[in-house]
Amino acid sequence: MTTNALPQPVNRLITEFARLPGIGPKSAARLTFYLLRGGDEQALDLAQALQDLKERTQFCSVCFNITEEDPCQICADDGRNPNLLCVVEEPLDLLAIERSRAFNGRYHVLHGAISPVEGIGPEDLKITELIERVKNGHFTEIILATNPTLEGESTALYLTRRLKEFDVKLTGLARGLSVGGDLEYTDEITLGRALEGRREM
């Protein structure tokens, strides 16, 4: 989509947009020309937002969530249960659990899952930091809320092995039926897991 017929700054923005996930060359050109035709203010606001994104955010030194201030709001909140820790793969997973409003403890973000195929080992994740935190903290329960994928489950299994030396209860999220779902359309493996994890009523 970039050609010599266009000025270099236009070409450059098209190329940058096209590098983003979910955006192809045509969408990139459409976005670029939208901004070109729009008011100055809109383009400058976008530029400022992008700059702030990198300059005014950092990882929380306690839980490694993305934050503007260190420590982050959740870590600084005295109203939250300091004995309960939830380990997640990504900041977006933390956000999902926060939206549920069902958890009032602390978090630890790993920033990924173990996957040798992609060259990701424990040393590439915030695992050493997690161990340190558990060693020095007063946690009574740690919820390993990694994704129910092979990599997520392997990471949880690895963490279980590393954390079992501490006097702390290790739990995982229940696997099973989605709320509002249909038993009939649930796949065999999920249904099998749901049966394994059934509970007394």
Binding site: P116, V117, G121, P122, Y158
Partner: peptide, 24 residues
């Protein structure tokens, strides 16, 4: 899992990667 384990074995053969992930 086999693909992951073999990738890890190759890394360990080259002296990189974590041995304590293998049991997982």
């Amino acid at each position: 899992v086999l693909e992951q384990r073999n990738a890890l074995l190759r890394q360990l053969a080259e002296g990189i990667g974590s041995m304590d992930v293998l049991p997982v």
